[in-house]
Simulated assay, not measured.
Amino acid sequence: MSGSRLRLAVVIAATLFGGALSGHAQAQAVKEVNKLTPHRAIYEMTLDDARSASGITGIDGRMVFEFTGSTCDGYSLNMRMVTQLTDSQGQTNMTDLRSSTWEQGDGQKFRFQSAQYLNDKLSDVTMGRATREPPNEVVKVKLSQPASAELSLPGKVLFPTQHSLALIDSAIAGKDLFQAKIYDGSEKGRKVYDTTAFIGGEVKPGTDKAELEQVSKDKGLGELVSWPVSIGYFDAKEGDLTPSYQIDFRLYANGVSRELLIDYGDFSIHGTLTSLEYLKAGECKR
C-alpha cells in the first residue's frame, strides 16, 4: 500500500468529520444547522479485507483528530494517523501521517499542511493555501511544498467543512443523493475529486443502541437520529466511472461518525470509534 493512499485516509476523515453539527436532537439540529461542535475522537484502524494481489496481510493503527473553531474564527482540524502495515512476506512498515487544516467560516479561504513519516523518516510534506475569488468563485491555490506552484480550480469546488455541512443539510432534508467537487489539499495539493454521496434512510433514535460501542453509548449517540452514508471519490480529471476509493460510515445528527469503512478496491480498512470527547465551543464576538 502506498503512503499516498494512507494519507488520503486522513484527508477523507477531515472531509467526513470536519463538520460536527451541534444539537441534542433532530429538531435542535435543524435549528442550528450552521453551528459546529468542537470535539476530539479516536478510531482504531484495522484491515477489513484484502485481495491477494494487494500483498497486504495486516493493518493496525490509530487515527486521532481534533476539531475546533467557529464561524467567526474559522475551523481548525488537526489529525494524526499511525499505521503498521504487514505484507505477504511478513515485513512491517510504520506510517505516521499528520495533517492540519484551517477553513474560513464563510468558506472563502482554506489552508492546509501535511507530513508523512515512513519508519520514523520524513518522506513527504505538502503545504499550501486556497482562496475563493469573486465574481466567478474560481478557487486559486498557492502551493509552497513540496514545490512552489499556482493552480486555478474552475467550477463550484467545496472545501472540507463546506462539504460536511452540505452533506448534513442533505441528510436532514431527506435527500438520498448529494454530489460535489471537493478540494482538500490531498495528493500534494493538486487533486480535485468528484464525489457522490448516497444517504440512506433516517435511523430513529434508540434503534441501534444495542449495537453501539460503550463510548458511543456514554456520549449519547444512541439518542440521536443518524443516517448510513456512502461516498465515492472519483478522479475529476480522468472522468473515471469507478471510484478511486469509497468510504462508508454512520453519520449522527451531532456530526460524529462511527463504523468507518474505507475501500480502495484491492483492500479495505475498518475504523472503530474508541474515544470521543466534546470540547468547549468558543463564542463569536460580533
Rank of each mutant, 00 (worst) to 15 (best):
G220H: 07
L279I: 06
I182R: 04
S170D: 09
T207E: 06
C72T: 01
L241D: 09
R40A: 15
S244G: 09
S275C: 03
N254S: 13
E277V: 12
A130L: 05
G185T: 09
P38I: 14
A27N: 12
K191A: 09
Q179I: 05
G201T: 12
T274Q: 07
T95F: 03
L77G: 05
D60A: 15
S186T: 07
L122W: 03
E44Q: 14
R129S: 09
A9E: 11
V203Q: 14
S88Q: 05
P243W: 06
S88I: 07
D266N: 15
L21I: 15
A281T: 08
S244R: 15
C72D: 02
K35V: 12
L260I: 13
Q113P: 00
I59E: 01
G105E: 08
L165E: 13
F249N: 02
Q246L: 08
V10T: 15
V30P: 01
A115N: 06
L251N: 13
D176L: 02
L77V: 11
A14P: 00
G201Q: 14
Q26V: 11
S226K: 12
S2W: 09
F234V: 10
E283I: 05
Y43V: 04
I12H: 12
T92F: 08
A210D: 03
G265N: 06
T46G: 06
Q104T: 04
T196R: 13
D48H: 15
L85E: 09
L6D: 00
V229Q: 14
A197F: 14
L16S: 01
E44N: 14
I269D: 04
I168V: 14
L122V: 02
T92N: 14
S148R: 15
F65C: 07
A25K: 15
E66M: 13
G61S: 11
D218L: 06
G107V: 03
G3P: 00
D87V: 01
F159N: 07
G55P: 03
D73T: 15
T46P: 03
D124F: 09
V125N: 10
D248G: 09
N93H: 04
A149K: 14
G185L: 10
G61L: 13
G220F: 05
K140A: 05
L8K: 10
A253P: 05
W227C: 09
T195M: 04
I42P: 03
A147F: 14
K121G: 00
I199N: 03
A236H: 11
A253W: 11
G282Q: 14
